[in-house]
Design a protein around this nucleic acid. Structure first.
Length: 1043
RNA sequence: GGGUGAUUAGCUCAGUUGGUAGAGCGCUUCCUUUACACGGAAGAUGUCGGGAGUUCGAGCCUCUCAUCACCCA
């Protein structure tokens, strides 16, 4: 069966991939011939995801390493899987529900989760199929999912991941590494959840800065003096207010203070006084103190800053330092709060606090709603507009004069000066949710945090002491910088899709005054009812415990209850939906008890945290969760810790650092020894790919057009460490052509009817040509191994390209033609065997990068012991196989052919014409090189004959070679002046080089300090150049005689 | 504002302990020669961003300036 003209990738790829899978070629440990393991954990793509060019790059590199190690006989595992991707997936399913006018919040949580699982079943396999099209050789039988084994998972989604996540949470909770706290977090008003710092994108947008007057209390005044840089007073006036600049007027209602810098003389006289927030009902304007803090920048705005601890990260720090109350103004949707007691009451309490007349704690502040009735329920941006309008209307906006030119009724230009509110147009950095794209609101909420300070140490040390290498090295600096300044990691998310936090809460009865007034160890009805009538159960504190299930947590609550007076000490712990239900249930059962005095009916209701864990909490467990942890499986034993993590630089903090911290915190080991970070893949101009720009390259479209191998080779070739990745269509096309070149090398072999028995051993050879190519093969094998060992994928790809095309196809195949067509049966047989062997080596060495076409060509043989995917990687070395003499001779031949061709072309000898060749003073080595290879030389350089001469004729082009000078007599064929000009040009170049070489050698310091071999090399170089110069000069002389 | 990286042929990029610059694509000329026109042969193009320094010698090391990109504020 004759080979097709080119490799039909689209037809062959699926067939080949199916054959690999059918033979379990990718299974963990497949083709192992040694005990060493090689493990790569795939960075799990989102289960919602579709393959983008970053995945294609990332997974190509992983596949190259895995295929290479598998062929080398390592016990290899490439662990695949997907991430449940909390926010992204929930968003996706919500969008889908919206198509049928359904909303998540209209359905029970269970039903929504069923929808998500349904959606996962439908489209979760997409990315797997796409990875297969790339040729990814993952052990798909082990495919993992970060939500596997969750309580609500449908059949077929069993697995250990949920257990692992819960177990780690409980362990870290018990070890004191996880805590609950009220802190300012990034709040996404669209998803109504907290998100981590890393999920926030700060984008510069056009904003405004408003300037408002905060009147001093009781009509106080002060002299405001503004000085310029030289200390000269430029403004002096009496003021009864302090001017505040803000980009967020709607948060003024929550101000707790005004801060100025301690060194700011302008305000020194009013520090400690009170000023009035100029918004809200006049009767209840709140007064807040003017304080000092290092935070305000004297040169920014007015130098005075309003402090709104619950709505700004900087203010939060100031408020914490200064003990300033932080009043939360917004609800979970980013609208102004509408809950709680009337504004007047809240404002009065706040005033009492500001006056120091009343103490406060977190819970008390949190319950207060300081939004005046007229603003309640407004969206935050509507509220902003209204606040601005109200303040301006009252005359408390800072005004300034603006002059503009206008045409009056007569068409004349007139200048009009108006006094308008002072509003600066300003670029401001605004935080956006990376998923929701809405403005993130800092919000003061109760969240769960990992105490990263406590677990960051081992991860830092691992890199510092070299246990984990980050490539490129610059990644290490970035890693240190982030980890050394690490913030607590907020891990709770107010979502439904995810691992529900395994924490249960109960009302803290001890703190509710369920006290035993009589001290008799028992509560009587009066004592209990007294408490209930105060109705403080809902506002009060809670206690919480973590455990992997409700049954496990029961005991912990019982233990606490046991310390309470009878009969509460015997109450049965039951689970209810939420806090409100708990309070209700408790009250009801106490009332019941009051009637029947039956302690067996007493219950203590607890409720589970409704939140789920940050997706990255579970993906942090990926290196061992995928191997069956917490079960001590054989796979865990064998494949953990793994070897290399290949991932994008953008994910270093999100994932890499957290995996390192979690692996250490849980298993006490580093999850891998090497991290290979790569950049974002960009378009050919170096710009980020984005849908809006329309420059997104779909890897599957590329695969359709050029085949997976071409894309893979391009990816490998781009993968220089630390480099920017620019993907260009032309390159991909070029490497597709490379595949065709390889294909044609095989059709060459077929054309010459070279036997193809398969699995040929390296032949014993006597022909120089064959010795040479075997040596070249050994060299490239070493280069490839070294390159891949060092993760220099581009070096490996380039070396293989240069070898296959530049050595095998350009020279070896050409050289072999005369032998293959000749009569020397022994030489022919040897060359046939060598050629087959060399081509097989090309397939083996190229297979990790170009798996499909190589497997296809491998299959052309009569029989093969194994598929190429499991072929044994060669171990021969250049030291054993390179024959220096053969090497020298073949290079001499190549050199001669190239020189003759070059001279022919430049002197316009017709390409088809055969020319005679002359040679002068050829030494024995040269003569033998000629004798051995003259057939090749004559054929490839189109030479008629060789004649020994003592002098070259006039009009002869000379070719200086090691061991003799060749010449082509061209009298009458060449354009003399043109040829002289050409030679003089090269003489000019040579003179420059000679100058440099001579200059160096004449410099005594160079001779003194440079290493021996460098000097020797320079001398040899000079000798050769001088030789060349002499020959060119001679050639010019001859030509001049002619002219 | 802080950090990291980049700046090399027309384009996209290599260049591993400092020894005097390479690849692919594109371009020019020639060739349809019995593996391959997704091919073959030959060729042109670089004060390695600017400036200074260390060195016998700098694309590579140091400093500085400029421009760009990304990350974090």
């Amino acid at each position: 069966m004759a080979m097709e003209k080119t490799f039909d990738a689209s037809a062959a790829e699926k067939r080949i991939y199916d054959a690999w899978e059918a033979s379990d070629a990718f299974k963990a440990g497949a083709n192992k011939s040694r005990d060493e393991t090689f493990t790569i954990m795939i960075p799990p793509p989102n289960v919602t995801g579709v393959l983008h060019v970053g995945h294609a790059f990332n997974n190509t590199l992983q596949d190259i390493l895995v295929r290479w190690k598998r062929m080398k006989g390592f016990d290899t595992l490439w662990q695949p899987g997907q991430d449940h991707a909390g926010i992204a997936t929930q968003l996706m399913v919500e969008k889908r529900l919206a198509e049928t006018n359904q909303k998540r919040t209209d359905m029970p949580r269970e039903d929504f989760l069923t929808e998500v699982w349904k959606w996962k079943a439908e489209s979760g396999g997409t990315i797997i199929e796409q990875l297969k099209r790339l040729g990814a050789s993952c052990d798909w039988s082990r495919n993992a999912f970060t939500m596997s084994g969750a309580p609500n998972a449908p059949e077929g989604e069993d697995g250990n991941f949920h257990d692992a996540v819960i177990k780690v949470f409980v362990k870290m909770y018990e070890d004191g590494l996880i805590y609950r706290g009220k802190r300012l977090v990034n709040w996404d008003p669209h998803f109504e959840t907290a998100i981590s710092d890393l999920e926030v994108e700060n984008i510069e947008v056009d904003g405004h800065m408003w300037h408002f007057k905060y009147p001093l209390a009781n009509g106080a005044t002060y002299t405001y003096i503004e000085k310029d840089e030289d200390g000269v007073t430029i403004l002096e006036e009496e003021r009864d207010y302090i001017s505040i600049a803000t980009t967020r007027p709607e948060t003024m209602l929550g101000d707790g203070a005004v801060a100025v810098h301690p060194s700011d003389e302008r305000y020194a006289s009013i520090v400690g006084k009170l000023c009035e927030i100029p918004v809200g009902p006049k009767a209840q304007r709140r007064l807040i103190p003017i304080i000092t803090d290092e935070y305000p920048d004297k040169d920014f705005g007015s130098g005075a800053v309003k402090i709104t601890g619950a709505h700004d990260f900087n203010d939060y720090q100031v408020a914490k330092r200064g003990g300033i109350p932080m009043y939360a103004l917004m609800d979970t949707k980013g609208a102004m709060r509408a809950d709680g007691r009337p504004y007047a009451e809240g404002a009065a309490t706040a005033q009492a606090i500001a006056n120091g007349e009343e103490t406060f704690d977190e819970a008390k502040i949190a319950a207060m709603n300081l939004v005046p009735e007229e603003y309640r329920g407004l969206d935050r941006f509507e509220a902003r507009t209204k606040v601005i309008a109200d303040i301006t209307a009252e005359g408390l906006a800072v005004m300034h004069d603006v002059t503009r030119t206008e045409k009056n009724d007569d068409g004349e230009k007139v200048e009009i000066t108006e006094t308008v509110p002072y509003v600066e147009a300003k670029k401001i950095m605004q935080p956006f949710g990376d998923r929701s794209k809405v403005v993130i609101e800092p919000a003061l909420t109760d969240q769960w945090f990992v105490d990263t300070d406590k677990i960051v140490g081992p991860a830092l040390d691992a890199v510092k002491n070299g246990d984990v290498t980050i490539m490129p090295e610059s990644g290490e600096k970035v890693f240190y910088h982030w980890l050394e300044n690490i913030e607590p990691w907020c891990i709770s998310r107010q979502l439904w899709w995810g691992h529900q936090i395994p924490v249960w809460y109960g009302l803290d009865l001890a703190s509710h005054g369920f006290t035993d007034d009589e001290g008799d160890g028992a509560l009587d009805i009066v004592e209990m009812m007294g408490l209930l009538s105060r109705q403080t159960l809902l506002d009060g504190n809670e206690q919480h415990h973590a455990a992997s299930s409700f049954d496990d947590v029961k005991g912990q609550f019982s233990n606490v209850m046991a310390k309470l007076p009878i009969p509460l000490s015997n109450a049965r712990v039951v689970e209810v939906a939420d806090k409100a239900t708990a309070a209700h249930t408790l009250a009801e059962c106490l009332a019941q008890y009051a009637m029947d005095q039956d302690p067996t009916k007493l219950v203590y209701p607890v409720w589970r945290d409704a939140d789920v864990l940050d997706t990255w909490f579970s993906s942090g467990l990926w290196p061992f969760g995928t191997l069956g942890w917490p079960e001590q499986t054989p796979e865990l034993d064998k494949y953990f810790p793994g070897d290399v993590l290949i991932t994008g630089q953008d994910i270093l903090f999100f994932w890499v650092a957290r995996m390192m911290m979690m692996s250490q915190a849980v298993e006490g080991e580093n999850p891998f020894h090497t991290v290979y970070l790569h950049q974002l893949v960009r378009d050919e101009k170096g710009e980020k790919m984005s849908k809006t720009k329309g420059n997104v390259v779909d890897p599957l479209v590329v695969v359709d057009e050029f085949g997976a191998d071409a894309l893979r080779f391009t990816m490998a070739q781009m993968a220089a460490l630390g480099g920017v990745l620019k993907l260009s269509q032309d390159r991909i096309k070029g490497y597709r052509n490379f595949g065709t070149k390889l294909w044609n090398a095989f059709s060459f072999a077929e054309h010459y009817e070279i036997p193809n028995p398969g699995d040929t051993a390296m032949p014993e050879v006597s022909q120089t040509l064959n010795k040479w190519i075997i040596g070249e093969t050994a060299k490239v094998r070493e280069t490839v191994d070294h390159a891949l060992t060092d993760y220099r994928f581009n070096d490996a790809a380039n070396a293989l390209y240069a070898f296959t095309w530049g050595k095998v196809c350009d020279w070896y195949l050409e050289f072999s033609k005369p032998i293959l067509q000749g009569d020397d049966a022994a030489a022919k047989a040897e060359t046939q065997a060598t050629l087959r062997w060399v081509l097989d080596q090309c397939l083996i060495l190229l297979h990790p990068i170009k798996p499909f076409i190589t497997e296809e060509l491998w299959g052309l043989a009569d029989s093969r012991a194994k598929m190429l995917v499991h072929a044994d990687w060669p171990t021969y070395t250049a030291a054993d196989l390179v024959d220096a003499e053969a090497d020298r001779e073949m290079n001499w031949v190549i050199n001669l052919i190239e020189s003759v061709r070059s001279n022919r072309a430049q002197t316009h000898v017709p390409a088809g014409a055969k020319v005679p060749l002359l040679v002068q003073s050829l030494d024995t080595k040269g003569q033998s090189a000629w004798d051995n290879n003259h057939v090749l030389i004559q054929r490839l350089a189109r030479i008629e004959s060789l004649e020994h001469v003592t002098d070259f004729p006039k009009g002869c082009v000379t070719i200086p070679m090691d061991g003799g000078t060749f010449g082509i007599p061209l009298e009458g064929l060449i354009d003399v002046p043109e040829e002289i000009a050409r030679l003089e040009k090269s003489l000019g170049k040579l003179a420059k080089e000679l100058g440099g070489l001579r200059g160096r050698l004449k410099n005594p310091k160079f001779v003194e300090s440079a290493p021996e071999e460098v000097i020797a090399e320079t001398r040899e170089n000079l000798r050769l150049r001088e030789d060349e110069e002499a020959q060119i000069k001679a050639a010019i002389a001859r030509l001049q005689e002619l002219g």
